[in-house]
Nucleic acid binder design. Sequence first.
DNA 1: GAATTAATATGGACACTGTCAATTTAATGA
DNA 2: TCATTAAATTGACAGTGTCCATATTAATTC
Lengths: 198, 198
Amino acid sequence: MASKANGYHHGNLRAELLMAAMDILDESGIEAVTIRQVARRVGVGHSAPANHFPHKQALLTQLAINIFNELGSLIKSQLQSAPEDVSEKISLLANTLVEFGLAKPNQYRLLWRRDYLDNSSEELNCAMDIIYDELLATLASSKKSKVSVESKAIALWSMIQGYVTMRIDGNLEAKNDEVSGQERQQAIIEVLLRGILS
Amino acid sequence: MASKANGYHHGNLRAELLMAAMDILDESGIEAVTIRQVARRVGVGHSAPANHFPHKQALLTQLAINIFNELGSLIKSQLQSAPEDVSEKISLLANTLVEFGLAKPNQYRLLWRRDYLDNSSEELNCAMDIIYDELLATLASSKKSKVSVESKAIALWSMIQGYVTMRIDGNLEAKNDEVSGQERQQAIIEVLLRGILS
DNA sequence: GAATTAATATGGACACTGTCAATTTAATGA
DNA sequence: TCATTAAATTGACAGTGTCCATATTAATTC
């Protein structure tokens, strides 16, 4: 790609490794993302990545950070052109998260595979918190009730996380009955919304 | 253990492999459960397990089935000595699931790691459905509303799954504020319950 | 500009994995 | 008793992440 084409030194290896890793992730899932496979795709020796990522975990963590950031941007842009109504806002946010997960299942999965990631990475946790904070801010304008905003946020955050995970893993297929995914998605958001707003 | 002690033929290998695998799972997580490690712990050659489980997936699938069954029994016994009140029943069921996940995180995790399991296994899906059906049955006696029982069940099932996953992966630690896990757990169940019963 | 240093690449090695194959041992049944 | 079958053995293979010594180039310093 945008390499210096001098033969030995690549010039842009770190970025290209990340791109190749993302491609493999999308195509074949996290299990297929191996250091050696990524190196092969970029056309470089199997030990070259070590200069840019000390271990596999570091590469995957950076990948997850990038995914969180992209998802965060998406949510922000969606919310900017959002209606004033609180429940519509919450619904939009939830739908954006679900749609992202369904559209890019392998990327979404990686976000929650903390066994593959460096949990102590500040950057990773910040990238995640940006999304969570968006959720908190949106919920903050809902009617005060016995239940705290934090609890509402965690309830919503949890339900979305669980729903998407089960959807993309095929755990809900047999339970969809006559209802389409779209309707179900709308319905469960509505259930929680009712609890949040009451 | 209960082997025939003849030296060569083990006599009870299948069961002991499962026990050893479960121990390793509990102790060190799913990544540490390797065929060779399990065989080593039982004191048998690295290829002996192949006679009882054609591949690693088969062993892990059986493990997951056993876990689902135990969890199912636990839930059933809990519900038998449950109060009549619907909301109390739902709350009990949710708490039982969450408590199980927190008490045996690695077992709980495996239940949802469909990439490690044989998704087409009838037995596995049945074992899971037993729990889901319990959920459905409990919810069925709640007040009829615009939202179907199925959607309520999936909402609850999703929220629990997401909440437990994030709790045991440490994704909620920074978001707990001053509130203890117990209180938070109660609060999010209450939020959803309010949506379900309204 | 030349020489030194630092960064980045290379291939080989190691221990580990799952799975296969050929072989050995023991139990079973005609 | 003897053939068959089930269940164990060891050895091999390709694949993995990570370390190592080495080679090449870029950057820095004199």
